[in-house]
Simulated assay, not measured.
Amino acid sequence: MMSVKILCAAMGLCLSLAACAVGNTTDYRDVVPPLGVATQKTVAVETIDMRPYVLADDNTPQWVGMVRGGFGNPFGVHTQSGAPLATDLTQATISSLKASGVKAAPATARTASDRNLRITVRDWKTDSMFTTSVYFNAEAEVRDQAGTVLARNAVNDKVVHDNESMNLPSTKLERAKAAFKTFMDRLLDGGIRQALR
């Protein structure tokens, strides 16, 4: 029979894990790697959040995953900025393009640009406890001023990080962020970058 001391220690660990799981955020405003695009063309960037759990109002547009407490109970993870994920991705993409000297801005109904880069997100979430699962499903599309599609690419993938039980939620989320950065690099591939020129 389990001693009271062991039972108390186990309960304490579960409560500690639950406390660590509350209130976590991730900053995705730098998740787009350097794109290395050099062009005189202007680029309008937009991100559309088509995640079904957001469209159904099961989660907010700021929701990016969950960290589970000691009993497996989920606690939401949200964007550190407090802005919708789509806004953070748009800003991250613009920042990456501007780093190469590209004139990039958010797309609006009145935007007149040479190129339009649209990113459609269908899945973007993490699920962390003893392992961390990272889910990604998105499409990138470049159109010219006339609306002709110049390039399109899609990535639908999942990464699982094992042996996470001893890692703090912040460590798990940083590793997940690195996976998202790799996914974004694959999404905005050579074809997409060439079409922006």
Rank of each mutant, 00 (worst) to 15 (best):
residue 41 K to P: 00
residue 6 I to H: 07
residue 186 R to G: 11
residue 100 S to D: 12
residue 156 N to R: 12
residue 164 E to G: 00
residue 150 L to Q: 14
residue 130 F to Q: 09
residue 43 V to D: 03
residue 1 M to A: 13
residue 61 P to V: 02
residue 106 P to C: 02
residue 70 G to T: 08
residue 73 N to W: 13
residue 29 R to W: 01
residue 96 S to F: 00
residue 86 A to C: 07
residue 81 S to R: 05
residue 194 Q to H: 12
residue 121 V to T: 05
residue 122 R to G: 10
residue 116 N to W: 01
residue 79 T to R: 05
residue 74 P to T: 15
residue 89 L to A: 12
residue 186 R to L: 04
residue 176 A to I: 08
residue 48 I to T: 15
residue 98 K to P: 00
residue 133 S to F: 01
residue 43 V to L: 02
residue 115 R to Y: 03
residue 108 T to P: 00
residue 98 K to D: 00
residue 168 L to G: 14
residue 21 A to D: 05
residue 79 T to K: 06
residue 170 S to G: 07
residue 92 A to T: 05
residue 75 F to L: 02
residue 86 A to Q: 13
residue 197 R to S: 11
residue 77 V to Y: 03
residue 70 G to S: 07
residue 165 S to T: 07
residue 139 E to V: 12
residue 183 F to N: 12
residue 118 R to D: 01
residue 36 G to W: 02
residue 12 G to S: 07
residue 128 S to W: 06
residue 98 K to I: 02
residue 73 N to Y: 12
residue 41 K to F: 11
residue 117 L to E: 00
residue 185 D to N: 14
residue 92 A to Y: 01
residue 182 T to P: 04
residue 78 H to M: 11
residue 5 K to L: 12
residue 99 A to M: 03
residue 114 D to V: 04
residue 121 V to D: 03
residue 56 A to W: 13
residue 141 E to W: 07
residue 42 T to Q: 14
residue 67 V to K: 02
residue 191 G to F: 04
residue 157 D to Q: 09
residue 10 A to C: 09
residue 27 D to P: 02
residue 60 T to D: 12
residue 118 R to F: 01
residue 190 G to E: 10
residue 31 V to W: 09
residue 154 A to M: 09
residue 84 P to Q: 07
residue 145 Q to A: 15
residue 86 A to H: 10
residue 173 L to W: 05
residue 143 R to N: 11
residue 73 N to T: 10
residue 160 V to Y: 03
residue 153 N to L: 05
residue 178 A to D: 13
residue 172 K to Y: 02
residue 92 A to N: 02
residue 161 H to T: 06
residue 50 M to V: 01
residue 175 R to F: 03
residue 56 A to L: 15
residue 52 P to H: 08
residue 82 G to M: 08
residue 147 G to Q: 03
residue 145 Q to K: 15
residue 175 R to H: 13
residue 161 H to Y: 14
residue 25 T to A: 15
residue 145 Q to N: 14
residue 183 F to W: 11
residue 182 T to Q: 14
residue 126 T to P: 01
residue 131 T to A: 12
residue 18 A to V: 14
residue 1 M to C: 07
residue 96 S to H: 01
residue 185 D to G: 15
residue 25 T to S: 15
residue 53 Y to M: 09
residue 156 N to G: 10
residue 36 G to V: 08
residue 153 N to F: 05
residue 166 M to L: 13
residue 31 V to N: 08
residue 152 R to I: 11
residue 54 V to C: 11
residue 170 S to Q: 09
residue 8 C to L: 13
residue 181 K to Q: 12
residue 189 D to K: 11
residue 164 E to Q: 15
residue 13 L to G: 06
residue 85 L to E: 06
residue 41 K to D: 15
residue 35 L to G: 07
residue 132 T to C: 02
residue 96 S to A: 15
residue 96 S to D: 00
residue 151 A to C: 06
residue 40 Q to V: 15
residue 115 R to Q: 05
residue 140 A to C: 05
residue 91 Q to L: 09
residue 48 I to D: 13
residue 88 D to M: 08
residue 71 F to I: 10
residue 34 P to I: 13
residue 8 C to F: 09
residue 57 D to T: 13
residue 144 D to A: 07
residue 90 T to Q: 10
